[in-house]
């Protein structure tokens, strides 16, 4: 499967709020991180969730965020990070 992003790319999580089943956490929407790894491809959970068994395969990315980019008032260490897994439809180039 050809991936739109490569390791090291800066990506922005879509600032979108669909009403149904998605796996991109609310706290990451609109935030910028870096592709840390490409973790294979999996069937789109937004289709699987509704009984669509021939769901499209999407690349899955591990995206690393600096905590200070996620939370303006972050209180922990300066190097602290969070890694979240995203299907490709949730990421735009940053």
């Amino acid at each position: 499967m050809s991936e739109r992003f490569s390791v090291g790319d800066r990506v922005r999580v879509r600032r979108a709020y669909p009403p149904g089943h998605v796996r991109a956490p609310y706290f990451t929407r609109g935030k910028v991180g870096e592709v840390q790894a490409i973790a294979g491809s999996y069937r789109n959970p937004e289709q699987l969730a509704y009984g669509i068994t021939d769901a499209d395969r999407l690349p899955l990315y591990r995206v690393i965020f600096r905590q200070s980019d996620l939370w303006a008032d972050y209180q922990g260490g300066p190097k602290d990070t969070t890694v979240v897994d995203f299907y490709e439809n949730w990421l735009d180039p940053a």
């Binding site: 956490p25 973790a39 999996y42 300066p78 890694v83 897994d85 995203f86």
Partner: peptide
């Protein structure tokens, strides 16, 4: 780090605490 301290775990500030949110597969 607040969660870690509730479990009795303290790490120096210059250690990167990396949280993994297992959202997907």
């Amino acid at each position: 780090r607040a969660i870690l301290s509730e479990f009795g775990t303290t790490l120096p500030d210059d250690v990167e605490v990396r949280v993994h949110d297992s959202t997907a597969d």
